[in-house]
């Protein structure tokens, strides 16, 4: 098995204020995966990413990027890593293209002869070619975010660390970012992508890690995670038939039915959805809609923490 692209052991950050922002996390991002690093605002995702990149010193623990220890190995490994950390940041009075040239000039391993070609290609890729000659301060929030992505794509990378890449983007922009991530992953790049919106990027992820209050609650393949929770059955019928529907479902052995208007929701347990459907129809319940649902990541989060997702510290 190939070693993970990102790994941490007991990674901890206690700030001078005494606040423990990251509490002994054991991150493992497999090569070639799209790892969704999820958690509410303030759960420690960005501090973790800053430690991975050598910007912040861990209080305890270690971290490796592409097998190089950080921060010592940063000089050799970071050219292979494209990053977007806590929002894009550029010189406001330089154009988008000049900002990319500035970053490329800082990279001692980059070839200055290809700077222009590479930056134009990166701008093209994020849909910013038309605004390349505009000063950064005239960019909208979405354009700034795109320029941040372009900077991460300035060179071919083995690993992309994208902190909240969809922040400030409209739904169309968010879809484009998801598409871009999928494309990069298909080309073999490992992507570590964080978000405080669980549903926003979870579709493109092959792996998920969920942070809460500085701790990594779970980390697994996405499919394995969603199969952890109890599946539920949602039956939509006419309002005057919800009583009958509830009785039928209870008789079948479905647990804890909840009625909400014309909908009845119950936990499916080991009952097959088609069995329930047949029983409902047999009892004369007009079934308008029926769905077997896996719990969402958000529900999983609530189950794991016992609190709402919006509750940051």
């Amino acid at each position: 098995m190939t070693p993970p692209a990102v790994r941490s052991a007991g990674l901890t950050k206690r700030f001078r204020s005494g606040q423990v922002a990251v509490d002994g996390i054991e991150l493992e991002v497999p090569r070639g995966s799209v790892y969704g690093f999820l958690g509410p605002n303030g759960s420690g995702k960005t501090t973790t990413i800053r430690m991975l990149l050598g910007l912040v010193r861990p209080t305890a623990g270690r971290a490796w990027l592409l097998e190089e220890p950080m921060p010592e190995g940063g000089g050799s490994v970071l050219p292979r890593v494209g990053v977007l950390v806590e929002g894009p940041a550029f010189h406001p009075y330089l154009t988008g293209r000049a900002n990319l040239a500035r970053l490329d000039a800082a990279d001692a391993t980059a070839d200055p002869r290809t700077t222009r070609r590479r930056s134009d290609a990166a701008l093209e890729r994020v849909g910013l070619a038309a605004a390349a000659a505009k000063p950064f301060r005239q960019y909208s929030l979405g354009m700034k975010q795109r320029l941040g992505l372009a900077a991460a794509l300035l060179r071919p990378r083995d690993l992309l660390v994208l902190d909240e890449p969809t922040n400030g983007l409209d739904p169309q922009g968010t879809r484009e970012v998801r598409h871009l991530i999928r494309e990069l992953a298909d080309a073999g790049t490992t992507v570590l992508v964080s978000s405080h919106l669980l549903a926003e990027i979870d579709q493109v992820c092959s792996h998920i890690g969920i942070m809460s209050q500085g701790k990594l609650l779970v980390q697994d393949e996405r499919l394995a995670l969603t199969e952890r929770g109890e599946p539920t059955l949602v039956v939509r019928t006419a309002v005057d038939h919800v009583g009958t529907a509830t009785e039928v479902l209870t008789a079948l052995g479905l647990g804890a039915p909840v009625v909400d208007g014309p909908e009845v929701t119950a936990s499916l347990g080991s009952v097959a959805p088609e069995t329930a459907t047949a029983a409902l129809v047999g009892a004369g319940v007009p079934v308008v809609g029926l769905e077997a649902r896996r719990p969402s990541l958000e529900q999983l989060f609530v189950t794991l923490t016992g609190e709402g997702f919006d509750v940051a510290r």
Partner: peptide, 14 residues
């Protein structure tokens, strides 16, 4: 303040 320092260090520049 501009936030460009973190990107400069992540390029990386020592």
């Amino acid at each position: 303040q501009a936030g460009t320092l973190r990107y400069l260090l992540a390029v990386p520049v020592s």
